[in-house]
Design a protein around this nucleic acid. Sequence first.
DNA 1: TTAATTTTAAATGTATACATTTTTACAGGG
DNA 2: CCCTGTAAAAATGTATACATTTAAAATTAA
Lengths: 210, 210
Amino acid sequence: MLKKQQLYQQLKRDIQLQHWQPSAVLTQQQLAEYYNVSRIVVRDALQQLINEGWLQSHGKAGIKVSNFTVAEANELCLLRLQLEPLALQLAAENLNFSILGQAEDLLAAIDNNTQLSAFERGDLNWQFHRRLYQECHKPHLLRLLDQLHQQVSRYIGYQEQSMCYANTSATEHRQLITLLRAGSIDAACTLLREHITTATDALIQYLTKT
Amino acid sequence: MLKKQQLYQQLKRDIQLQHWQPSAVLTQQQLAEYYNVSRIVVRDALQQLINEGWLQSHGKAGIKVSNFTVAEANELCLLRLQLEPLALQLAAENLNFSILGQAEDLLAAIDNNTQLSAFERGDLNWQFHRRLYQECHKPHLLRLLDQLHQQVSRYIGYQEQSMCYANTSATEHRQLITLLRAGSIDAACTLLREHITTATDALIQYLTKT
DNA sequence: TTAATTTTAAATGTATACATTTTTACAGGG
DNA sequence: CCCTGTAAAAATGTATACATTTAAAATTAA
């Protein structure tokens, strides 16, 4: 595999694990030494991570790890509420039983594996949502949704401890599929909105508690 | 200035001017020779342009210039309709006379300079909208709006010839300011929606005509 | 002639080396 | 003691060189 991609993944993971603390200042050289790759590779990975919001280039002040605020969580929630139901609605007319089945398989993969790490569970979780949205066939909308998900996934290190909402999440996913099968699009969108709000609330509760 | 940024700007401009035709296949080496810089610089600029949707990496098939479709124009319109009025609404409570004045100055800069190129006019146009949206103080929302604008600005080469809607645009801008001054937020949002739709229609009309 | 396989060329990824800018540290004057 | 200006050092931008992969061409066998 490409070293650039390896480092990119590794950096994301290490940020999620809070190995690099928020607002820590990183330099290309540091990282090149630490991960034992050339600075070119580091530069490529950094630019990508900056574009995706994991890092922030404060110009001369160096590169900082983006930190997390309640305000940001609320903003991301607002944007997801604005775009995800839209995607679901547009996708609805293209959702057939085959696709819904694929989505259910992803849910099964989560439930059947009690050993999954928070990261793997988070990935599958998004794959589930994404599989449904995908059928809207709107590349730009999907791109924005992917970006928003990236932002949210930055918090996943925090969520690992506060796993309390995992069960309600699974239930809501099942309900969503049921509604879509029945063709109750509006109800599905409403449920989705609640789902997003619930997840955000759990996260905010955790953030404010610590 | 940084060479990377120079090349980045130049490439965007050349794509807008259709110097590099849509779906043309570019290579790093070609571009490095053509623009007389090292491949490192080209790589950096390309990655950024790929992230912003100007180019598409087809893996082994090389890098292609994104082309334009009516479907894409419609999708971008849909997303703008979803997010721009939201930003305006959120910004509304923070808009004071000073900020509205600054926005009007930008409009004046457009009107007073009949010599402006389509690019410069497009820039100022966006600066006007952006100045208003900015007051929503939602970094992620603003980031998404910037991205959407980037996508739209890719078409500007096409718009240059079809300048017909410039006048109505200027009028709508004035009305928008007036409504905001009067505190008629909802009316302003409605007008904004019409504004976006009008601009998109003009573009689509041009795209389908040729 | 075509299909397959080896060889060759070219493009991209990566590393090292050099240049330019920026930061820091320190010395001397106010 | 602080301020400032200059020298040293470190970090980043850029170029060149090398390595690896991928695409193309050509040669050979069926």
